[in-house]
Amino acid sequence: MNDHNNALIHLEDITKVFLTDEVETHALGGIHFDVRQGEYVSISGPSGCGKSTLLSILGLLDTASSGTYTLNGTSVQNLSAADRARVRNQEIGFIFQAFNLIGDLTVFENVELPLTYREGIGRAERKQRVIEALERVGMAHRLQHYPAQLSGGQQQRVAVARALVGKPAILLADEPTGNLDSRNGEAVMALLDELHRAGSTICMVTHDPRYAEFAQRKIHLFDGRVVDEETLDRLRREEEQRIEQQIAARKPAAADA
């Protein structure tokens, strides 16, 4: 039996149902898993399988419809919006596909931003933390530049520094290479690998099997459920066969027409 007490993230029977125009969409159905301190976990699966919904719940940007979510020893499932924002700011570092940098703030100001919402951190400590975070990602020489003056790869490095600056318990990365060419994508993956080796806990959503391989442990989602690799391969083959059968069934009709 798993010792859930030592898990940094513990999810138990997490479901998410979206209600629109009286239609129920079951985005997640009974998700169970743990992420331990210092682990590097990837969450992968086909488009529409619930990866981003799950990451939004992990990042306290959304709430589950039912189930239990414990983050760093705190049950976060029923927190107020203000408490969720506080826990998110202290415990979670986000790395987004679209970088999400603010165009009229400098690199320094973008990285400093999460710290301005923290009580008890003075200006001198903020400055020291920002410079340390930018040094870790190799961008300390660009702290007075604006995002538009940087390449995509450099912007993502700045976004990683912003995620690190608050010394979070976990880094959540949502398709961190999605807007980058392969060379910059590989450089960002190498950076995440380096951060993991230095002790960071990382949970990354990716649709790219090459990048999923960087993780120590791979979680596969299919139709809102966690499946093992063998099951995922079987479901993918069945899906492909179903599509092929549908195409084959349409061909004679097209020929008759």
Rank of each mutant, 00 (worst) to 15 (best):
K127V: 01
A215I: 09
I43V: 13
L61G: 07
S75D: 15
A124R: 13
I121Q: 09
D21G: 15
K251Q: 15
H196M: 09
L134N: 05
E213Q: 10
T201G: 04
P147C: 08
A248P: 09
L195S: 06
H207L: 07
S52M: 03
E39W: 08
A81Y: 13
D83T: 01
G122Y: 02
E238C: 01
E229W: 00
T231G: 00
A140H: 05
F99T: 00
A169I: 08
L79T: 10
K51Y: 02
D256A: 15
R242M: 12
S47M: 02
A27R: 11
H10G: 06
S200E: 10
R142G: 08
A253I: 14
A82M: 12
E39D: 12
I9N: 06
T15D: 12
I131W: 01
A254T: 07
L105M: 15
D62M: 10
A148I: 11
L101H: 06
E132A: 13
A190E: 14
D21V: 10
E239C: 04
E213M: 06
R36L: 13
R236V: 14
A159F: 07
G50T: 11
E12R: 12
T15F: 12
Q154Y: 06
T63C: 07
E119G: 14
P147T: 10
L105Q: 11
